[in-house]
Nucleic acid binder design. Structure first.
Length: 562
RNA sequence: UGCCCCAUGGUGUAAUGGUAACACACCUGGUUUUGGUCCAGACAUUUCAGGUUCGAGUCCUGGUGGGGCAACCA
């Protein structure tokens, strides 16, 4: 379970975000007896993304902070868009993030009978009517933001007439789309949502939970607030786009005379170099631009999980981002910072060579091997150490050798001396090139008395290299990811679609990587640090015991300005 | 050209009428058997114009800029 108790900033400085202040005031005033009950209401029509993580952390986190409860409610009022596949994925993502719906799990469709009764009450009170107009006519009659709407003849129908027609709608007597139920509010209201909003439409569609029981389905506005009310949600937290819906949310609650849930809106999360809309993410999936909803480049929670992100790092990121009403675009670098911050503490260090060339220790005895201890995590003394096989022939990183180097080059080059991590200090002797002039082999000599942990050589090596002993190395595929989009705001271009800005180099597959033997059985769920390179996690789809496939989660910070 | 919301360093978020701060990014230096981590330091902020007040980032008025609203979507 999450240990989130508000943000780190809050704990350190005592500052409160505006929602916490609202709740503080409510509690002080004794509203709802001081109870805090929130809800997270996803529509099961797509996978959860990092933006939803903000909503989840806020609603679950706040309830947790105030000793309250949080409901998970699937907002399933539109059967043509929704699917159980998404219900299952959403459940899994929330659990993975570290939250438990301790108030219960519900579906808006659980309330279809109750909502129907609510509608009858408004009809009987003369506050709702059946409209036979077409969608186009209704749109026209609603007017525009600068022009008031006009009433049609159906608006004057009597409650009994409306009741009969609405019951007829429910019984399937009318064609899909032929009639709607509307609230009778104010066709001239400057808020378009109050211009006699639609409550019910006729749809002969099979619902993933209620099957064919219903052929009328409530609209969002006629379902959401009432569902909150039915569940006695005290604080209904949502994103800014619903701000103009709030007067309608309140109107239904007042006129139905039901539990007064209150809605508060905050700015949704935006990240640069990606898109954050289910519609656009779905497009990328269907377009095969990515390898499914959980492609490691996707901002979905399942994608981040497959990439190797930890739930703790995402929670930390959300805490750092804060809560306010201002539109924002967060630098993805902050997400990566939170990730490194967590992984640095918990990720086991291992040796892996991504672009291998041979490293031969000319004065090391042929056929000899020894086992050298190496710490698993210098940040965590309790993680202990493991033994690495060492021998005469090793793999080293091609990038760690350069023919011409200056004083600032700490790695191998003619005349240079380096430390092999957890092993010996070695000095350049020679190198071999292939026909294309590429270095394929580097020869060095080692200093026997420079062994890690018992170094009496007195030699100072500026650089330390990672390596893998050849005969024990295992082969692996490693996938290097870059940002999915090459533009910081792919959505922000008026005349060009966001797909124009897909980064063609967002995936690079390396097939000749050499890993230390302990990684042969690595399983998805653990993210490792490949020493000096970055953090890597076994791919949940392609990695198999014996033939590992690793995703690069994120590189190590690199302050070297070569 | 109607209504609603918003405006604080590069990016975010605080300051609740009383010295504008914190994090990330960037830049310097130190430590280091990861050019990682860690430590120290530097740079950098209230959209504009009026008004109220002893005192305004904060309150009021107006302007400017950004976002949202006219789906039988949520």
């Amino acid at each position: 379970m999450s240990e989130n108790k508000g943000s780190v900033e809050n704990i350190e400085s005592g500052s409160r975000n505006f929602i916490q202040q609202i709740i503080d005031a409510d509690i002080a005033a004794g509203v709802n007896g001081g109870l805090v009950h929130t809800r997270f209401p996803p529509e099961p029509n797509g996978y959860l993304h990092i933006g939803h993580a903000k909503a989840i952390c806020i609603s679950f986190g706040l309830a947790n902070e105030f000793g309250g409860l949080t409901n998970l409610r699937f907002d399933d009022t539109n059967p043509v868009k929704e699917d159980v596949e998404y219900v299952d994925a959403i459940r899994e993502d929330i659990k993975w993030l570290g939250f438990e719906p301790n108030g219960g799990e519900f579906f808006t469709s659980d309330y279809f009978d109750q909502l129907y009764t609510f509608a009858l009450k408004l009809i009987d009170d003369g506050k709702a009517y059946v409209d036979d107009s077409t969608a186009a006519e209704i749109a026209l009659q609603k007017g525009t933001p600068t022009q008031p709407g006009v009433a049609n003849k159906y608006r004057d129908r009597t409650p009994s007439e409306n009741r009969e027609l609405f019951e007829g709608m429910k019984e399937g007597k009318f064609e899909a789309g032929s009639r709607v139920l509307r609230a009778k509010i104010d066709l001239a209201n400057p808020n378009m949502h109050l211009r006699d909003p639609l409550m019910y439409r006729i749809m002969f569609e099979t619902h993933h939970r209620t099957g064919d029981k219903w052929c009328i389905y409530p609209m969002y506005d006629f379902a959401h607030g009432q569902s909150d009310s039915i569940e006695h949600i005290t604080h209904s937290l949502c994103s800014l786009e619903f701000e103009v819906h709030r007067p309608l949310y309140d109107w239904y609650i007042e006129n139905l005379e039901i539990f007064p849930s209150r809605q508060t809106e905050f700015a949704r999360l935006n990240l640069n170099y990606t898109v954050m809309s289910k519609r656009k993410l779905l497009f990328l999936v269907e377009d095969k631009s990515v390898d499914g909803w959980d492609d490691p480049r996707m901002p979905t929670l399942s994608g981040l999980r497959r990439r190797g992100y930890t739930p703790a790092s995402i929670r930390e990121f959300i805490d750092r981002v804060g809560v306010a009403k201002r539109e924002n675009i967060i630098d993805v670098g902050l997400l990566e910072w939170a990730l490194r911050d967590d992984l640095n503490r918990v990720a086991p260090r291992v040796m892996a060579v991504l672009n291998p060339i041979k490293l031969v220790i000319t004065n090391y005895p042929e056929g000899k091997t020894e086992l050298l201890p190496s710490v698993n995590n210098p940040e965590d003394p309790e993680s202990g150490s493991r033994e690495l096989p060492f021998g005469r022939e090793l793999w080293m990183e091609a990038d760690d050798f350069k023919l011409e180097a200056n004083r600032k080059w700490f790695r191998l080059a003619p005349g240079k001396t380096v430390r092999l991590k957890s092993a010996y200090i070695v000095e350049y002797v020679d190198h071999i090139c292939n026909s294309e002039g590429e270095v394929t082999e580097v020869h060095v000599k080692y200093f026997e008395n420079s062994k890690s942990g018992s170094d009496t050589s007195g030699i100072k090596a500026k650089g330390t290299l990672h390596w893998v002993e050849s005969s024990n190395a295992i082969d692996a595929e490693v996938r290097l990811y870059d940002r999915l989009f090459a533009d910081p705001n792919p959505d922000g271009h008026k005349d060009r679609p966001f797909t124009d800005f897909l980064n063609p180099d967002s995936l690079e597959i390396l097939t000749n990587c050499k890993l230390e033997p302990s990684l042969a059985q690595a399983e998805p769920g653990t993210t490792y640090q490949f020493t000096r390179l970055g953090y890597f996690a076994p791919d949940s789809r392609y990695s198999k015991p014996g033939t590992p496939v690793f995703n690069r989660t994120v590189t190590l910070r690199d302050s070297w300005k070569g």
